[in-house]
Design a binder for these strands. Sequence first.
DNA 1: CTGACTGCAAACGTTTTGCACGGTA
DNA 2: TACCGTGCAAAACGTTTGCAGTCAG
Lengths: 136, 136
Amino acid sequence: MTDFKTILQHKDLKATHQRLVILEELEKAKHIDIDKLYNLVISSCPTLSKATLYRNLNELVSKDIITEVKVANQKNMYETTKLPHIHLICKKCGSIEDEVIDTTFLLNEVSKHRNFQIEASSISLSGICEKCLTKV
Amino acid sequence: MTDFKTILQHKDLKATHQRLVILEELEKAKHIDIDKLYNLVISSCPTLSKATLYRNLNELVSKDIITEVKVANQKNMYETTKLPHIHLICKKCGSIEDEVIDTTFLLNEVSKHRNFQIEASSISLSGICEKCLTKV
DNA sequence: CTGACTGCAAACGTTTTGCACGGTA
DNA sequence: TACCGTGCAAAACGTTTGCAGTCAG
């Protein structure tokens, strides 16, 4: 299990009970929106207010401990920051899967045509996931 | 200049003055958020209400005449629907450039590892644009 | 002429903020 | 103990909706 207490302290954030619960639920859920996360969090921490959840998600995003994932037709999702990966988003069931993939080829292709200094990439593919394909 | 009147009629939408102005400003601006678009549109169409702008953007997105672009740390942007392309987003000045690029290699790579039926892709690279690089 | 569209204002849901209290380091 | 973080309630914000009037086809 990830040691979020140390991570928080390294980023000059206090390791409060609320923050630890938020991060643990986020880690378990992989990708989740605010409302679903709120419902999970209040079972371990019933007094937590939505204001605190909003404040912490913003804080954690700005310190790059978690990442905001924007998806068409869905609310903003959050995930704990991991190695670079792409998202496979199912149009049927809305699930999001991670896939680690080498994007060097793509980035080189862009660099060949453009004088643009790439620092990060965000790639998502939408379509039908394996589960929904077999359901048809 | 794109013939938006015909495009609208083909999609069973009336070619109102408001819609044509919205589409023309969108075409000129390339990528733009609602508030900036509103300010442009009211100079050609001073009575246009934000409700109408919202309603039309949703309508035009659902008919695939325009496309919603989600970008980290920025409001939703809109562009007229064009051939598939990727976005180069500058972290310094916030500009968005389009780049048409062959993504077959990437998509094949995913198909090799996953049983996921890809229908669309959304790729954006963030970094520093040419203009900002020379400014340093 | 008629249904689709618009403008206005009010409603709505989401996110942020001010303030007093509480908990971490 | 000092100050960052929290909870609550209210405010601010962005977006949607109901309705009566207007306009494109």
